[in-house]
């Protein structure tokens, strides 16, 4: 026995090629989010397209007054805000998956993801500002209503 022990070569177990396991099921949440947000986006986007391009006068109705009229209602403000945020996070997370696939070097992955986060954050902030600080009845320098504003602006004044 002891001689056999001395001469038997020790076979090193092959090391796994990956180490460090999942962080709080992050990838699982990402997968579920893509499907959940996908279903919501389906409803949000197609209703949006139907209302803007199909119902009423169709695509010809879209002008400043049309947008102002929609955003006079909090329902459409919330609708567009949710659509903006969901689409940006969904699209941003989708791009993160692609970066993980294609960018091999750590520095490249880090750089691209930083750029991506900056883009997503900028667009969400700018879009939200447009939605929530929107003035349906802008005035020109002399204090008159600008042309093209919705008709209700006359009553509001």
């Amino acid at each position: 026995m002891s001689t056999a022990d001395a001469t038997t070569p020790v076979v090193e177990p092959l090391r796994p090629i990956r180490s460090g396991r999942s962080r709080n099921h992050a990838e699982q949440w990402s997968w579920l989010f893509m499907r959940g947000s996908g279903v919501l986006l389906l409803v949000l986007i197609f209703t949006h397209l139907f209302i803007n391009l199909f119902s009423g006068d169709g695509v010809n109705q879209i002008d400043f007054a049309f947008v102002a009229g929609k955003w006079a209602s909090p329902v459409w403000k919330i609708w567009d805000f949710v659509m903006l945020v969901l689409a940006m996070i969904h699209g941003g997370n989708g791009m993160r998956l692609l970066i993980n696939d294609y960018a091999r070097e750590t520095w490249m992955r880090k750089t691209l993801k930083t750029l991506l986060t900056a883009c997503v954050a900028t667009i969400v902030v700018l879009g939200s500002l447009v939605i929530f600080t929107f003035d349906p009845c802008p005035l020109d320098a002399s204090g008159d209503l600008l042309p093209g504003v919705p008709t209700f602006c006359e009553d509001v004044r």
Partner: peptide, 12 residues
């Protein structure tokens, strides 16, 4: 299942 829940696992 825990192993396949990894970053490099089934969610890819």
């Amino acid at each position: 299942l825990e192993i396949l829940n990894d970053k490099a696992g089934v969610w890819k």
